[in-house]
Design a protein around this nucleic acid. Sequence first.
DNA 1: CCCGCGTGTTAAACTAGTTGAACGGGAAGC
DNA 2: GCTTCCCGTTCAACTAGTTTAACACGCGGG
Lengths: 353, 353
Amino acid sequence: MPGFQGPRLKDVAEKANVSLSAASRILRGERQRFGAETCDRVLDAARQLGWRRNLLVNGMQTGRTRTIGVMIPPFDSFWVDVLAGIHIVLASADYLPITVWVGDCQEMPHFEKDEDEGFKQISRLLDRRVDGLILWPSFAVAYYDHFRELLERKVPVAVIDHEYSEDQIADSIETDEAASARAVAEHLVNLGHRDIACLSSREAAWQAWAVRRRECFEQAVEELGGGKVRSWRLNAWGTDGLEIAREILSQNPRPTAVFAVTDHEARYLYETAIEMGLEIPQDISVVGFADLDFAATMRPALTTMRQRPREIGRRAAQLILDRLDGDMAESPPTTIRVGADLIVRKSTARPPK
Amino acid sequence: MPGFQGPRLKDVAEKANVSLSAASRILRGERQRFGAETCDRVLDAARQLGWRRNLLVNGMQTGRTRTIGVMIPPFDSFWVDVLAGIHIVLASADYLPITVWVGDCQEMPHFEKDEDEGFKQISRLLDRRVDGLILWPSFAVAYYDHFRELLERKVPVAVIDHEYSEDQIADSIETDEAASARAVAEHLVNLGHRDIACLSSREAAWQAWAVRRRECFEQAVEELGGGKVRSWRLNAWGTDGLEIAREILSQNPRPTAVFAVTDHEARYLYETAIEMGLEIPQDISVVGFADLDFAATMRPALTTMRQRPREIGRRAAQLILDRLDGDMAESPPTTIRVGADLIVRKSTARPPK
DNA sequence: CCCGCGTGTTAAACTAGTTGAACGGGAAGC
DNA sequence: GCTTCCCGTTCAACTAGTTTAACACGCGGG
């Protein structure tokens, strides 16, 4: 029961009254060997029948499906924008991304729990013979072992927001953490803050960016004369945001500014501030990171580092395309660092006297 | 140069020392014809070599790629959640959605402008022989002509948020506009509002929901004794939101409540209210629609109808699966109406005296 | 009359399997 | 000694083309 699959090349050839191979050549663009009239006949026949090239066959023959697998968490607007960048670049190269999502939309996935499900997703991509893969760090770490297979199959892989420090086995595209953290530090120190806290995220192995963002920030503040940063982090499941925020804001002396490593953590600080009757930014300054879609509409509007997710997506896609048929097919893995921009809104001010 | 594609079945057969057809049968699950020891040998060999089924070949042979094309605008959290619902259902059936995006992330696409690009996207899906399609209305209307091809190819199509009134040629999954509009009307009329305005969106042909939402609301308010609704709508490009909002709030007498057909339009009303020094909800009540991710964090928090995008996505995916191998393969197109829930927040109150 | 050129044809091999039919050899049962 | 079963083999056809090689036909020029 192979359902009707549309007209075959054979149908086109018959309608145009030419041989199968002539039809194939003409439709592939090899026109010069044939008369103009014949070409027109074949092209017309194909159009009239609504024939379309079967990319499955093409894929079998050339080993290229013009398809790139993408695995991201469907978590927030950052990832949606990354995806947008990927789509734009791939579409213009006549490639198609196939996206699989790990985890739930409501919360950052816990890859440890979903290992099987995640690997099934990757399998679905490999079974369809994607030409390349763009992955978020979770897979890269949780399935480090499976990377062997990807390398053996020579499927180029780009990992977003995660760099392997020791043995880099795949390309990496990430936010420039050092420069970004320094920009935040400068902003706060310049405002006069000398007692600054940092609220980090879950610092799981596959959240290397969280660790680096915090460490870079701590270092930058100290270098700029802002004193020693007091740092907290969420638990492994990310469930204690409000409690940690309460702990930070209850310190005595209370820090005058808090850097949240993402806008999500900044939200906990906002909620806790309302709870405790503290005014942002009069009593405490808050800086976020990412400029997620809700950051601008928070009250007060959140000062945050705007990442460039679209550029990250674009660069990742371009890297895969270059590896596939560019000159860099064989060059060693690289790391691309994408900048971020400080967006000063209403949540930061000079420290209270 | 057909790049290395991983081990072939031939390699597995050789390693296990069996014939090609035996390997094929065993790996397909036809075990009873073979000895347990032979089966193990083949399975082991496949595992050790990392062999994986080539779905391209499968697709060619069976005419089924276990792949569903999805076309949506990457616009707001509504569509992200629809996508989430689709992914969940398809993943559990071992299908994979391939998503193409039309337009830009920042704004609702204008399909009229991008007709070529949009059709290229659909082509990319059909060229890869997707088994079914889930489309947003834009395509359904702009490319009405191309629907012929989809029907001929017997590719089941589900359209989200758009019902053809005359000749329904595809399945449709949409929000229950009549019930939802009535819920909003009841809420406002019960609060005592008797002079209610409606701010509709662009009412393009492919935004049938906007028209119906407005009309249902007008009718419901009148039936409930809330008087005659005064309605406005955005221009064809959706660029005059603030101007229209200003016009509404400058009316004399000013309506005491405004129903915005989506949360996006509610935003214009909020901005304009600040501009004009009006307090929400003391001076004017505002109701949105969709409960997009920013609705809860607006100040005051927006009262809105929460659509069920995930359910819409799930139902759409399920419908496609049922059409593919269920009993309803041949039944006529249906329309599924999904409910919505009124979320009362802080933007509605009794009308000012 | 033969050569070469422009067109186009046929046949075969190839992508990676899947599937049906026929068949073969050893062992057990009768 | 014959039949039957079990286990497995080989062969061929099939999915939808792509590509190479060899070849054929008619026309114009020499």
